[in-house]
Amino acid sequence: MSDKARESQSRPDLRALFLGFSSVGLSGFGGVLPFARRMLVEERQWMSADEFNTQLGLCQFLPGPNVINLAVIVGKRYQGLAGAIAAPVGLLAGPFLVVLMLALLYDAYGSLPAVQGMLRGIAAVGCGLLFAMAWRMVLAIKDKPAFLPFTVLVVAAIAWLRWPMPLVMLGGLLLSGGIAYWKLGRK
């Protein structure tokens, strides 16, 4: 089958984009990306596995919420500007309403000791999940002797010295990106 035939066969309209990404947003607990992959690659086949990895790599490289960036790319690809609006709005609308309902509950019952205890328990687990994620990312860093010092510097500047993050990131990116550029040139 030619690419064109395949594309016309699985080419989603605006409604499909909105609903497809809504299902991703509402089913994604503790990280939406695995659900996005399942929907895009396996269930609806809007992208191949390779395309997904490439696009995700791009989204992870850019700032901002990865999965929303991904929705913009997929939406634009199939339905232009309207698609690039429908897909991320679909992704966010459902969870946005759920979160607002939880916010109303919190406003009403948040002062109860039991609720505060529950939230502290969840925060402790969330904190553990973040440490675990940071650790996995440390293991994935390439060329650790050159780049791990930057991780340490960021932690010192942000967590300890409480410097403003935009400045830290700008400075860090110039230094660490500069070293990466230099190293790439030497190969």
């Binding site: 940071a134 990312m137 440390v138 510097l153 860090g172 990116l173």
Partner: peptide
């Protein structure tokens, strides 16, 4: 390459 270690931090 340069962004990864900063994101971990």
């Amino acid at each position: 390459l340069g962004v990864a270690p900063l994101a971990v931090g």
